[in-house]
């Protein structure tokens, strides 16, 4: 199991990083495309004004607001990219479930098949000693599978709580019944096993139970770091 965790970080790591970075770069391209066209429209309006044509001030205002909003969206995307990049800094550490879920929801939100998602605001944050990268990867893959399966109009609800002994339960639920095809797949199963996680799937929910204390995982991963 410990060796499996090490192999997973090595083998799945690059592939997962690649796919997440591809979706982030797609989002950034969209942002740049909007800024580029809006700046171009501003230029066109300036030329019209120089030719003596009447240009409505509201058009200029809309353009500058749109550019400012897209720049903020760009900064936000880069912040998420940075946060994700730092998930490999420590092989094992105390990891916030709220932060991990929030980042996973934001990163999967760049995918064209992502659905509306709401994390339960009343759920009190829990920290677990685990591999933040593998946990992020496991939640990301789980969200992808749910998004691909649930109805387009459904809103995914996520909640979590501490379960005895030393486990955290994350529940993903939706309204219209779903029959999952080929989930969990091999990579997801491997990641779940390495983290001591289990899935329980029904028509309207998916429960992910994760071991909260990763001492054995910690020993294995820090050994390889040394």
């Amino acid at each position: 199991m410990n060796q499996q965790a090490i192999d997973l970080v090595n083998k799945q790591g690059l592939q997962f990083f690649g796919s997440v970075n591809a979706s982030i770069s797609h989002e950034l391209k969209n942002i740049f495309a909007i800024i580029s066209e809006t700046a171009g429209f501003l230029h066109d309006l300036t030329q019209l004004s120089k030719q003596g044509k009447n240009v409505e001030l509201s058009l200029l205002e809309n353009c500058s607001n749109s550019i400012a909003e897209e720049i903020e969206r760009g900064f936000d995307t880069i912040r998420q990219m940075n946060q994700f990049a730092h998930s490999v800094d420590d092989p094992v550490k105390e990891t916030s479930i709220t932060d991990t879920l929030t980042l996973a929801v934001k990163l999967t939100g760049f995918l064209r098949y992502a659905k509306k998602t709401r994390i339960d605001p009343s759920a009190a944050d829990i920290t677990v000693l685990t591999s933040p990268f593998l946990l992020q990867s496991l939640i990301y893959r789980t969200l992808c599978a749910i998004y691909k399966s649930v109805d387009a109009t459904d809103t995914l609800k996520i909640t979590f709580h501490e379960k005895k002994p030393s486990t955290v339960s994350l529940q993903f639920s939706w309204d219209s019944p779903v029959a999952f095809k080929a989930f969990p797949d091999r990579q997801t199963t491997d990641a779940a096993q390495a983290l001591g996680a289990d899935f329980s799937i029904s028509d309207n929910s998916l429960d992910l139970t994760v071991a909260a204390g990763g001492e054995s995982l910690s020993a294995a991963l820090t050994d390889t770091k040394a």
Binding site: N30, A33, I34, E37, T38, G40, F41, D44, L48, L59, C63, S66, E69, E70, R112
Partner: peptide
Amino acid sequence: DDEEKFLNALTERLKL
């Protein structure tokens, strides 16, 4: 295009 802002900006430019 599902990027509404991109669509709007491009539409305005192409109209000109």
